[in-house]
Simulated scan of single mutants.
Amino acid sequence: MALFAVLSGLSACGLPRSGPTKGEIRAGSVEEQGDTFIVPVTAQVARATAMVPPLGFTNGFLGAGVIGSDVIRPGDVLGLTIWENVDNGLLAGPGMNSTALQEMQVDGDGFIFVPYAGRIQAAGNTPEALRRIITEKLDAQTPDPQVTVARIAGDGATVSVMGGVGGQGVYPIERPTRTLSAMLAKAGGVIIEPEIAQIVVTRGHHTGRVWLKDLYSNPQFDVALRPGDVILVEKDQRNFTAIGATGAQNRVHFETQELSAIEAIAQVGGLSTNAADPTGVFVLRDEDPATANTVLGRTDLIGPQRVAYVLDLTEPSGLFNARDFMIRDGDTVYVTEAPYTRWQKLLGALTGAAGSANSLSKAAGN
């Protein structure tokens, strides 16, 4: 009894530990007048909570048709090259028969100025139509002129591509790059690991997000682009927090689109062999009311609910349930310490205190 009293006293003094015990967590349950629902994970619970919030585009993105991207718009930047079939042409310098007119921006009224051809309306024409117009204008002044017109990045029908791509920049919407996947290819492709790469498209005040793998597997996500779109390629930003008797205690980013509880534990180095209680693995979550009502068999819950899901890995189906239970963004995975670990700490503290007292006694005797 005396030993038990000493151990209890040491425990009450607060020996170091990684967090609350199973009993202390359960003391905060709704059944004990707390605010947390304690839910053991079964196969049914794993199925009810397995929904991973999907990514995708709204109808505003999906319903947008492919634009006539070859039509020149105000703000576009054009590159012109003019060949003349004479030695001393109107535009070419001595010994040259071609002239490059680069970065000619279409003004707000839709016009460009070409020497000896004058002010020409470019907006509303395709590059081919504009080529013919310029050729006709110059034909009266130099024999058999040859003209090429190319659209390059400018303030007109362009999109911005940034983030994890081979070449960030501003790219024109042209015939080969009218859709999202084609524009990504034009920008050098995605350099982030495909499993965790997400594509974010911002159009005005609206934003859509899709997984890269879904973009290529589902054609409807290959949306038509619009001038001014901003395309961002980034890594999956979801994360969970691992604390307690695990191999590592940290905030951890998802490495796959779907992450099960058993994978999350493995991702942080597994359970601590010398300290973890495999019957007390908790997943703490603010659960949405629909799922909380389903899991708890209720219909009256409104708003997010604090739920502590409990995994017992020693049960016959415990590992299967942990494999099927999906972790969500913002979850906390907490592994409690085994009871014997706490007793070891108490005994260690007791023997340490006794050893110190013995040393002091011997020192006093000397």
Rank of each mutant, 00 (worst) to 15 (best):
L3E: 11
S11F: 15
P16N: 03
G19Q: 10
K22A: 13
G23Q: 13
G28A: 08
S29C: 07
A48Y: 05
T49G: 08
V52F: 09
G60K: 12
F61G: 07
V66N: 12
S69Y: 01
S69F: 01
N97G: 11
T99Q: 08
Q102S: 07
I112V: 13
N125G: 06
L130S: 01
R132C: 02
A140V: 11
A153W: 05
V170T: 13
V170S: 10
P172H: 01
E174L: 14
A182K: 10
K186T: 11
G188P: 05
I192Y: 09
I196S: 14
I196H: 07
A197W: 10
V200P: 02
T202G: 06
V223A: 03
V230R: 15
V230Q: 13
I231E: 03
I243M: 15
A248P: 00
H253W: 13
T256Q: 11
G280D: 10
G303S: 03
A308N: 00
G318C: 10
R323T: 11
Y334K: 06
V335N: 07
V335S: 03
V335I: 13
P339M: 01
Y340K: 11
W343D: 06
Q344G: 10
G352R: 07
A354F: 14
A354L: 15
A357L: 12
A363F: 11
G365M: 10
